[in-house]
Design a protein around this nucleic acid. Structure first.
Lengths: 339, 339
DNA sequence: GTGAAAGCGCTAACAA
DNA sequence: TTGTTAGCGCTTTCAC
């Protein structure tokens, strides 16, 4: 493996100093056109490319923002990335994405690597970060690396852009109450995650205010996903008193649940109304199409990125916590309760 | 902003040399336990963390592999990432993902940044890379950065792990032929991409061998996605001679097409059979569930990553091109032709 | 406009 | 086992 071309090689070949080569690359207008041409030609011919590791090291910055997510397979994140990425690019950074696979150890590995200097900033969209984060902070509670959280549980300590999960739960409950429903079930993600506890509480509060409650055994809690949706459908179908409406904590799971109901000849919304949460692209393309709370995911990503860039570039923050409001999307899967 | 703690600070505080501090961090067993403890305590207390930029720079490696994809929003990629990531982790690397948003300029931005030293290797799963890649290669055709392609069009020049698209087209055609179909349509992605031309050709060849052809106006080509699927459904429905079977080049699009057929009271597979390509998690959770060619995406990612690690670590490659074989998954959306 | 020189923070010979 | 030292490749004052 041949040694890479360096500034020194170019400088020697062009008969200039390494400083001039460096300038030609990064501030072309500060060198005489004649010199510039000579250097640039050599750069081309000798296939010179500045060593990024050296550049980053010397400059003390990388031009990259990294975002860590719990599960990249969750289709939910795609728009979030788009929002981040667009803004990162606009601000002159590239966006790199890491997947912790919802594993604390992996997360720690990432943090160890990224903690200092791998990127100019770290955006966290993972659920279980409270402890690992502490490690990033000194005793002063000051982190060497600019951090933005997309998650409520860290909100108090680091700048946060998060979804108003409580509100989402409320608008879905209100929608179902207005349709006349009184008997509910919830298919929930792990409530240790505040994303899920937020949805759960918001939904329950709205029911409370209307004088309704959900019996404990009509709350089915577990790791969301299509298969869990199927499982929940079977659990519910087994009961003699099928509720008239189900709030499923994400669309993916709701899609599994609806499909399984279909197999068991339980019609949606005829027999039971189903509402989801997220508004995936597929949510409008199934039958029946899914009533859900749309999260403005792209905006979420955009805001998170803007906040990060402000921090990196030492601009004052308007606010240390930004709330993103979800929006009710009514489709076919919700209707009046069966009589 | 306080200056960060460096090896020198720790060395001074512990009364040792900077070399000892460095060793304590990276090869703890080579220092006397007593010294080690003293240093580690200080590291903790002074919140020292080695500057990754300096470490990477000095060592000449980063411990990171970057994969670039054309569109991270495509649910298709998630399993591919998982496969890569698992293997990267196993080999001691972290995986970072970049999204080029299918834009050559973005791609170029990434490559400029990544080309040298941002990562130990670059895996490319983007369609339109032929030109940009040239820039990475010197006149010698030698790239400074280890490269692996997941795409046929670059296959000749750099190591490749790719899907056997041609074969996939064939097994889907064969399945439909065996069901008795003779009248086909294809809903294709842009055929400038060899992923799509491969599927297209494979499908057509198998039909040829059975004495069938697809009329040119029954090939609907465009940018795949749910909306395009809906559009294709409307185009097909408008015809007097609706074909009996449609091969849609990915599941996402097939889901849109089936949903739109449903709206128009065209039943699948009663009126028309639909087969997709990918096997997304949602493909089994719609009604009717989708017959498709399953791409072993996780394996794809795993192989790509293994190949990359081999290259980085100068191990010999078994082969410079690995083909991943898709598998036919028969579900409800395909059946005998209407009589 | 250009060159000389001083490091950025760290690791890895090598010497002690 | 520990310390000394020489850079990694680049950018950036500061002279000229």
């Amino acid at each position: 493996m041949a040694k890479r071309t360096t500034v020194r090689d170019i400088a020697r070949a062009a008969g200039v100093s390494i400083a001039t080569v460096s300038r030609t690359i990064s501030q072309p207008d500060t060198v005489r056109p004649e010199t510039r041409k000579r250097v640039l030609d050599l750069v081309q011919r000798m296939d010179y490319r500045a060593n990024r590791m050296a550049v980053d090291f010397r400059r003390g910055r990388t031009g990259a923002i990294i975002v860590l997510v719990a599960d990249i397979a969750n289709p939910f994140f795609s728009e979030f990335f788009k929002g981040m990425e667009e803004n990162a690019r606009k601000a002159g950074y590239i966006l790199l994405i890491g997947d912790t696979a919802d594993d604390e150890k992996n997360e720690q590995d990432y943090l160890d690597m990224l903690a200092s200097g791998k990127a100019d900033g770290l955006v966290l969209n993972t659920a279980t970060l409270s402890e690992t984060i502490s490690a990033l902070e000194g005793d002063t509670g000051f982190s060497a690396l600019p951090l933005v959280s997309c998650n409520a549980s860290l909100g108090a300590r680091i700048p946060t852009v998060r979804i108003d999960n409580d509100h989402a739960g409320r608008i879905l409950a209100t929608h179902l109450l207005e349709l006349g429903h009184r008997d509910f079930a919830q298919v929930s993600g792990p409530r240790v995650s505040d994303a899920h506890s937020g949805r759960f509480e918001g939904f329950c509060h709205a029911l409370d205010e209307a004088g309704c409650t959900i019996p404990a055994d009509l709350v089915i809690e577990g790791n969301l996903g299509i298969e869990f949706g199927r499982y929940a459908a079977r659990m519910l179908a087994r009961r003699s008193d099928l509720p008239t409406a189900v709030f499923v904590h994400n669309d993916e799971t709701a899609i599994g649940l609806i499909h399984e109901f279909g197999r068991m000849d339980i019609t949606v919304p005829g027999d039971v109304s189903v509402v989801g949460y997220d508004d995936l692209q597929f949510s409008a393309a199934i039958t029946p199409s899914l009533t859900t709370a749309r999260l403005p995911r792209r905006r979420w990503g955009a805001m998170a990125c803007q906040m990060m860039v402000s921090i990196i570039e030492n601009r004052p923050l308007d606010s240390r916590e930004i709330l993103i409001e979800p929006e009710l999307i009514v489709r076919e899967s919700s209707g009046p309760p069966r009589s």
